[in-house]
Amino acid sequence: MIQTFSKGIIDENPVCVYLLGLCPVLAVSTRVIDAFAMGLTLLVILVITSTAMSAVKDHIPGRFRVFVCTAVAGACASMADLIMQAAMPGLSDRLGIFVPLITVNTLILDRALGFAQENTPSMSFWDALGMGCGFFLTLLGVALIREVLGSGTITLVPVGRFSGVIRIPALSESPVRVISLSAGGFLVLGYLKAVFDLAAPATIKKSADEEEK
């Protein structure tokens, strides 16, 4: 159980190892608070969809499972969007179309139509939780790097007198603006992928080499 959970964080990180769910990683990673909300939303939807798909797998013929998966993820994403609009309107405006788009996120489709179809609901829950945490932490890391270098700030939640924005001296006056742009997102992600590849366990490297051959 612990192994099923922990593999998604480093060894089989969905973003840096499998390059899954890249759309929000590139689009919603210019501010830490946006990445936090997006990562958390995707984590919850992934866990619900994957566990539900594992629970109903014996009742739905294989060729129809993709439709059911889309219906479950779509319903969750729509609910998340409505709750966000009501509770956090500013954040909802910034995340925009990327919350409804979670419905067709490749990470959700991969886990709910792959792992969840061959495992019990309990295992699927832990797998989705681990993969979701891996996605969440990576998205948060990319956003932190991009916001610090690209605008010299760290945007968090405003509390009381704290405006929610931490300004980093020197960097906030002359930031590396390209890091905030789409090209900067690819750059940061590329370097993170390189770090993960270097640090990947020998077993994964070996299987990747075998696949290439």
Binding site: T30, R31, G90, D93, R94, G96, E147, G150, S151, G152, T153, T155, P175, R177, S180, L181
Partner: peptide, 12 residues
Amino acid sequence: LLETREYPGMGK
């Protein structure tokens, strides 16, 4: 101007 999706450090 209402909240935008402009990039931080630029149009934001």
